[in-house]
Structure formats: structure tokens, C-alpha cells
């Protein structure tokens, strides 16, 4: 099953992921803001673009030499530069994940999955949300489950992250019929139904960027 050489997830890998993510969020900012207009305050794209571009610049100037260090540094910059709820939420996700990786110089897909699981648990705790509340968790939790399944099947890092990206995208799409139970969108009640959740959408983009980074590394 593992035909391609497996790229280790090291500091360089996550710096490339950050670069890709900033580029993708810059490109998709308008779409995210459009999704945020009917059910939020129409700032998600702007906030995510500002946060990731600032993080790319700041972390690129003094890049940490471990994958945990890179995630922790990005998380810190997101908390201070995003300005919306996605700042503390993504910031917590990445800092918890970074902390979980500790000082290890490089990890494989299984350790990455464990770290992301810790980060997503932190997000759930901070925001008090659960699956089905029409939040970023509706993309992230299916992604983690898909990683579990792919890892159990002996998949390579690329295969595991591809599975995560696919599940996150499907999870984000599946938020459309849901009624929001967290955040500003929850004030809208049934009127939040019929719109794809912007946070789940940005989460799916970030997981897709992980898969793209792995694919390019093993190509």
C-alpha cells in the first residue's frame, strides 16, 4: 500500500504547510467571507488571511527547528493577529498540538494524528461545541476518524492525510443543513440552516493543505 517514500513531518514540512495555507487562505478569503455573511459577521476570510499571512511572516523570520515548535509559534501568532473567534480556536488547536509533539525532531502520521487529536480536544473544550453544532469540529472530527481508519489500514503519511482532507471537505459540506448551536450564527436559529459553515470550510482547507504538503514532499 505504501508505494511512495514517506515524508517525515518535521519543522520544514510544517513551514511548507504554513506557506501553502497562507496562500490558500489568501485565495479563498472572499469565499470564506461570503459564507460568513449570511450567518456570521462577514469577517472570517479577512481574519484568517490576516492571521496566516502574519504568522507566515513572523514564523518565517525565526523558524523553530521542531514540528512542535512550529505549530506552537503559529498558534501564538494566530491568537494575537486574527481578531475573531477563529484566532483563539485555531490558536488553541495548533498550540495544543505543538505541545503534544514536544521536542521531537520529526514524527510520522500516527504521532501527527495524536497531536491533532489533542488540539481538536482543546478546541472542543474552549468553545464548548460538539459534533453537529455546525462548527469547525464538523470538519476536524471526521478528518481525525479518517486518519484512524487510514492508519489502521497501514497507509502512508500521504494516504492518511489525503483521507483526512477528503473527510474534512465532506464534513464541511455536510454542515449546510445543520442548525448552528454555537457562536453568532446560533442567534439566527433556523435561518442558519442552508448555509455551509465558514469555520468548517476553513478547517477543510487547512487539512487539504496538509495533504498537499505531504504529496509534494513524497513526489
Amino acid at each position: 500500500m505504501n508505494a511512495l517514500p514517506d515524508a517525515p513531518v518535521d519543522a520544514s514540512f510544517l513551514l511548507r504547510w504554513l506557506d501553502t495555507s497562507a496562500t490558500v487562505l489568501d485565495r479563498e478569503a472572499n469565499r470564506l467571507t461570503l459564507l460568513d455573511s449570511p450567518i456570521g459577521d462577514a469577517d472570517h476570510g479577512t481574519n484568517m488571511r490576516r492571521g496566516f499571512i502574519a504568522a507566515r511572516t513572523a514564523v518565517g523570520q525565526e523558524p523553530p527547528d521542531t514540528p512542535g515548535g512550529v505549530l506552537t509559534a503559529i498558534g501564538r501568532h494566530l491568537i494575537s493577529t486574527v481578531g475573531g473567534a477563529s484566532g483563539p480556536l485555531y490558536g488553541t488547536l495548533l498550540r495544543r498540538a505543538g505541545k503534544q509533539l514536544g521536542d521531537e525532531p520529526a514524527v510520522g502520521a500516527e504521532r501527527l494524528r495524536d497531536a491533532l487529536r489533542a488540539g481538536v480536544d482543546g478546541v472542543a473544550q474552549l468553545g464548548g461545541a460538539a459534533a453537529g453544532d455546525k462548527t469547525m469540529l464538523d470538519a476536524l472530527l471526521p478528518a481525525l476518524d479518517a486518519m484512524d481508519t487510514a492508519l489502521a489500514g497501514g497507509g502512508s503519511t500521504t494516504e492518511v492525510l489525503d483521507a483526512a482532507a477528503k473527510a474534512a471537505a465532506e464534513g464541511a459540506e455536510a454542515t449546510t443543513p445543520l442548525r448552528a448551536r454555537k457562536g453568532r450564527a446560533s442567534y439566527l436559529g433556523d435561518r442558519s440552516i442552508g448555509h455551509q459553515d465558514p469555520g468548517a470550510t476553513s478547517s477543510a482547507l487547512l487539512v487539504a493543505a496538509l495533504a498537499d504538503t505531504a504529496r509534494e514532499a513524497s513526489a
Partner: peptide, 14 residues
């Protein structure tokens, strides 16, 4: 509201 509460919680947690 929202991000104000979450940001304070995130800063306290760290």
C-alpha cells in the same frame, strides 16, 4: 461575546 470570551480563555489556559 464570542471571540472576546474565547480569547481570554485561551490566554488563561496558556
Amino acid at each position: 461575546l464570542g471571540s472576546a470570551v474565547l480569547t481570554v480563555k485561551a490566554l488563561l489556559a496558556d
